[in-house]
Design a protein around this nucleic acid. Structure first.
Length: 257
DNA sequence: ATGGTAGGAAGCCTA
């Protein structure tokens, strides 16, 4: 079995103790990280390598930043999402490991929707769909995991009415998320748990974690060849309740070998 | 309740 997880850690520097603890207890084979907020030369490589992981990092100063951790070798590295030649934001990295093509995705938030941030998000989603189509053409197992900053349906939100016009809920965002599904990708969690209300993110503000008021915005999208092998998919809310917690918690799936 | 909290940067921006 191959266990693949994704986790928006909101600063790898601050979150390193929590990440190391979770690597030890959950023992994932592959981990996709987002919002590492670290220059590559400042990334705490040695501590993670000491846990038995190979490492691929793509970061920048202050914002964004993605990484892939794997117990297997990382091959055919691909950095950055095509189609944005002047795009400086570190939000996409891709590699092959354990026979699976994996991508760590930090999709733009897009708020406020009245600013240039929203069209940037939508254009980024169109670029992602184009790349996802290319990967489908290879007819290999692909897992596109990360913080999609999209609430796919009202079931995935504690208060859909309050969030209706937010960039995470807007139809422009949801329809493009569905485009990925229509093209052939399978969303692992909702496929295995059609009616379950679970979240991957709880805002630091207003006591959302304590109130159980969250959003499901971190997703694992599987190509048909990966979906054939899908065994399980669960959200591990444990890390969200820990000390110095990220506002996101890990979600993982297992693929049969 | 148009605030609230967290992180990184540097004296605000992003989420």
């Amino acid at each position: 079995m191959l266990k693949i997880a994704t986790w928006n850690v909101n600063s790898i520097k601050v979150r390193l103790p929590a990440v190391l603890e979770w690597l030890g207890s959950a023992a994932p084979d592959v981990v996709l990280l987002q919002e590492t907020k670290s220059l590559d030369e400042a990334f705490p490589r040695l501590e993670i390598e000491d846990c038995g992981y190979n490492l691929l990092v793509h970061g920048q100063k202050t914002y964004n930043g993605v990484a892939i951790l794997s117990k297997r070798p990382l091959e055919d590295v691909f950095i950055g999402l095509p189609g944005g030649e002047d795009d400086e934001q570190a939000r996409y990295v891709e590699a092959t490991t354990g026979g699976v093509r994996v991508a760590s995705i930090y999709l733009p938030n897009g708020n406020p929707v009245t600013t240039e941030k929203f069209p940037y998000k939508i254009a980024w989603m169109d670029r992602l769909a184009a790349r996802a189509d290319v990967l489908l053409g290879h007819e290999e197992p692909v897992v596109l995991g990360g913080d999609y900053n999209v609430i796919p349906a009202d079931l995935d939100c504690y208060d859909p009415k309050a969030w209706r016009d937010d960039a995470l809920c807007r139809n422009e965002s949801r329809s493009r998320f569905r485009t990925l599904l229509h093209s052939g990708y399978v969303e692992a969690f909702r496929t295995l748990h059609p009616n379950r209300r679970s979240y991957t993110f709880w805002d630091y503000q207003a006591g959302r974690w304590q109130r159980g008021e969250g959003l499901r915005i971190d997703h694992l999208l599987l190509s048909p060849e990966a979906a054939d092998r899908l065994d399980a998919c669960e959200i591990d809310s444990g890390p969200r309740g820990g000390v110095k917690a990220s506002d996101h918690t890990p979600i993982w799936c297992t693929l049969r070998e």
